[in-house]
Design a protein around this nucleic acid. Structure first.
Lengths: 218, 218
DNA sequence: ATGAAAGCGCTAACAA
DNA sequence: TTGTTAGCGCTTTCAT
């Protein structure tokens, strides 16, 4: 599976210690340019490939962030993943993917999995189903796992979150229709106990309240 | 980040050796039921969580498969990811995600990343752009990394691959139109140097050759 | 600028 | 059934 070359092999060939090889390969300033270039040269010749598992084990950091979404088939989330992956890549981070299927039990399992795998942090799109069991999120807080909620915000959990401005979105939408001259606007939303729906309805109402639009046309 | 509990802690508390704890937690039959239940009980009490990094390091297996796709925004690939994740989960495997952006250099980088992270295998949707530099795939072969090509097949690389039957697909498509009575059928495909297009054109021609359809109607 | 020793948390191989 | 020893490949700490 791997070619089996480790820093020890390089160290022997170059005639230095493992740690010097490690330093050279990690751009530490504690290595002379001469030894560094020698080391890098040998590393290339042997097709050395760092073992990130060993590194993670030693440093206790995985350079990995776990991403849990409800449904990758939803273009909205696909787009989000794309964005995450893009900036993660720039920071040399990797993505461990979990799909909850919008199911609370599965969501919990995903989180446990990611913790076992020692991700450095978690991005979570929580289930949209109503649930009162927030234990898994409290665990994240308690164990100081950095995490941010995506696309849904839970009042009870004090953590960072990102979300589209739904209220403003539907406000703009309705405003647009009003400007076109429409007066009787039917607004169809999802289940009204879901916060998303509430925000949207709010925006709808906002717009209706300002029927002023009809007159001003900007 | 983690709660810091290791099998050593459990071992001390229960009064057994680490390896016994390890065995108990891994459902080995080399532990008496009595000790096992004691161990599991203590593990639960301490909120023990296995360190999969340490395990991977020791066993040299990560239980992770790398998936490289060109574009997650494409519903076709999103659907594929969903399927992969679904069966991976059942086998207690995890997905490390790479997005190549349909770019050969990025594809190479993704592969190198996954190898550094010591994935157990790779599923690759290769770039659809024409390229002659297959070095990275040869490396996979040489180092015996299990990998399978998805949605594109490269003649030069002797490996497993999965793909939709494009030829049959467009054959069915055209056959359908013919049966409806259409005679002059325009067929629009992508760049014709892409194998995908070739297959589709082939299916188109297949159908035209059998204009028999018109008569038989099944 | 370089190195020696220890350790990260687990499992493999061998004993008992 | 249980334990001992060693080791996975790297980094950390402390010397030199």
């Amino acid at each position: 599976m791997d070619n089996g070359i480790t820093i020890s092999d390089i160290a022997k060939l170059v005639g230095v210690s493992k740690i010097t090889v490690s330093r050279a390969l990690n751009n530490s300033s504690l290595v002379s340019e001469k030894t560094r270039s020698k080391i890098i040269q040998v590393a290339k010749r042997l097709n050395y490939r760092r073992n990130l598992i060993a590194k993670s084990f030693a440093t206790r950091r995985t350079q990995t962030i776990g991403v849990i979404i409800t449904d990758i088939t939803n273009p909205f989330f696909a787009e989000i993943i794309k964005g995450i992956e893009n900036t993660a890549k720039q920071k040399e981070y990797h993505l461990l993917l979990g799909i909850s299927g919008d199911n609370i039990e599965e969501e919990k399992r995903c989180i446990e999995d990611l913790l076992e795998r020692r991700v450095d942090g978690i991005l979570l799109v929580p289930t949209h189903k109503k649930y009162d069991d927030l234990e898994h999120l409290y665990i994240l807080k308690k164990e100081k796992v950095p995490f941010v909620l995506v696309s849904r915000h839970l009042e009870e959990i004090n953590t960072d979150w990102v979300m589209t401005d739904l209220r403003k979105g539907s406000y703009e939408l309705v405003k647009y229709l009003i400007r076109l001259g429409h007066r009787r606007i039917l607004f169809i939303v999802g289940p009204k106990e879901v916060t998303h729906s509430k925000y949207r309805i709010q925006g709808y109402k906002d717009a209706l309240k300002k029927q002023i639009w009809i007159l001003t046309k900007d």
